[in-house]
Design a protein around this nucleic acid. Sequence first.
RNA 1: AAUUCAGGUCGGCUUAUCGCGCCCCGCCUUUGGGCGGAGCGAGGAAAGUCCGGGCAGCACAGAGCACUCUACUUCCUAACGGGAAGGCAACCGGCUGGGAACGGCCGGUUGACAGAUAGGGCAACAGAAAAUAUACCGCCAAUUCAGUGAACAUUAAGCAGUCAUCAGUGAACAGUUUAGCGCAACUUCGCCUGACUGAUAACUGGUAACUGCUUACUGUUCACUGAGUAGGUAAGGGCGAACCGGUGGGGUAAGAGCCUACCGCCCAGUGGGCGACCAGUGGGGCACGGCAACCCUUAGGGGCUGAAAGACCAAAUAAGCGUCGGACGCGCGGCUGCUCGUCGCCAGCGUUCCGAAAGGAACAACACCGACGCGGGUAGGUCGAACGAGGUGUUCGGGUGACCGGCAUCCCAGAUAAAUGAUAAGCCAUUCUGCCGGGCGGCUCAGGCCAAACGGCGGGAGGACAGAACCCGGCUUACAGGUCUGGAUUGGAU
Length: 138
Amino acid sequence: MPLTFNKSERLCSKKILGELFKKGSASVQTFYLFPFRVLYMDAVAHAPQPAEISEAINTPAASLPAIVITVPKRMFKRAVDRNLIRRRVREAYRLNKSLLTRQESFPSNIAFLYTAKQIISFEEIEKGMKLALKKMAH
RNA sequence: AAUUCAGGUCGGCUUAUCGCGCCCCGCCUUUGGGCGGAGCGAGGAAAGUCCGGGCAGCACAGAGCACUCUACUUCCUAACGGGAAGGCAACCGGCUGGGAACGGCCGGUUGACAGAUAGGGCAACAGAAAAUAUACCGCCAAUUCAGUGAACAUUAAGCAGUCAUCAGUGAACAGUUUAGCGCAACUUCGCCUGACUGAUAACUGGUAACUGCUUACUGUUCACUGAGUAGGUAAGGGCGAACCGGUGGGGUAAGAGCCUACCGCCCAGUGGGCGACCAGUGGGGCACGGCAACCCUUAGGGGCUGAAAGACCAAAUAAGCGUCGGACGCGCGGCUGCUCGUCGCCAGCGUUCCGAAAGGAACAACACCGACGCGGGUAGGUCGAACGAGGUGUUCGGGUGACCGGCAUCCCAGAUAAAUGAUAAGCCAUUCUGCCGGGCGGCUCAGGCCAAACGGCGGGAGGACAGAACCCGGCUUACAGGUCUGGAUUGGAU
């Protein structure tokens, strides 16, 4: 399992994002684990087209989950701080995503909402990320 | 060397591992992509989004009005509210002239620095008064009253003096006379004594006058003080952000541009400068206060919007258009009262034309349904969008300078839910601290104690402000620390 992080693993679609953040959606599951609030959807709920299935077979990377990281501007006024937190979270996911992908099934779309009030170190973020990934894998 | 001010400049470094974006090369591939490798990859402010421009769309005859921006001058620039040089004003510093008053030169900082005799408007509070002003205090002559003082006059009183007069006393003196003495005696004479008379000086008292002094009343004049009346006065005090030119002299009752000298102000010439302005001349004779960051005037500018601009491709999908195919009228009934739709019934019934009738034809094409195509444009994507008012260098040329030109050289982020990172180790600036050395200097009970700079060894902390988003030129704001240049001050050396 390579420790890469391609464009295909980034969740950019406005449609999926709207679906993910729509309140009360049945297909979206959520939990809170310091320092994140995690939202994720299963791939089963999002019925794939036959063409997409064939592509998924051909390209293993496409089967990886797509994630989005958000850091609220309300908490951190300066762009430098938000960038720093987002990069740390992304590194934590990149280095530990095998915890998730080793499993039989895993969510297809995940959103990590950073909810801590302070800028915390990479070690703590990585610890929280591991716990969150393990929880999603079950 | 230290401190400080101004300006410029830099804005941590190295290695390893794992990653990210762009782009190029090679290989593989089921053409979607995958693998490997090379290169590049945040800032001086990327920030605020305050100006100006490029670019883009829309609008647009010309002029005016309205709105809005700018505002000492000249220049630089694509342009600017930016910059450079200069002018003026205020302030600061240094040097210097002079006896002083007061200047001169140099440097620095700051200045929305056009116009207040084009017009309108405004000015809280305080203050007497805030703009064709005003008399609160103060000052001043006049006048009324009161008081004080001085001088003069009148009157009265007292004291002193002078003179006159009256009365009294009254010496010397004169006269008469008496006694004594001198001469023998008498007369005479002389001396002397007493008395009387006269008269004078003098004294005492009275009266009148005069003079001087004192006191009192009254009056007049003058001075001062106080109060009042009606005035003068803006020199002074006081009020205020600001109050009706400043200083000296004259002048005046006191004052006042009332007069005068200088300064300021206004007007008109002269000379210098592209100009702002400067220098100087003559005249006027003090009105013409402040605010234009209130309206306004003058001069110059501004069409609006803003990359979410705009151009293009295009799954989905609505309207619309085209082609092909299907179906075809009216009516009646049921299904929910109406509408629509649907199902059923063809029993009944259309209009026009042809026909005797039977029957036929037309009205009949729209509309409706379906498929395909066009169109349209959502999701998504491409361009805009990275070669440009471009960067760097230049002991090249022009210019005081901003800057311009020449030459050389370089290609230097291009993301888009948004790359440029994470981790580890080391180094460096900085900083804290322990030990050792050091010893400015301080305390001292004279034994010692404390101890700055600096040096060595060790340990710890540890990167300021801050993240491109179409591009560029500026401005503003934030910023640990390093470094360079210049000015000033202090100290040291020569």
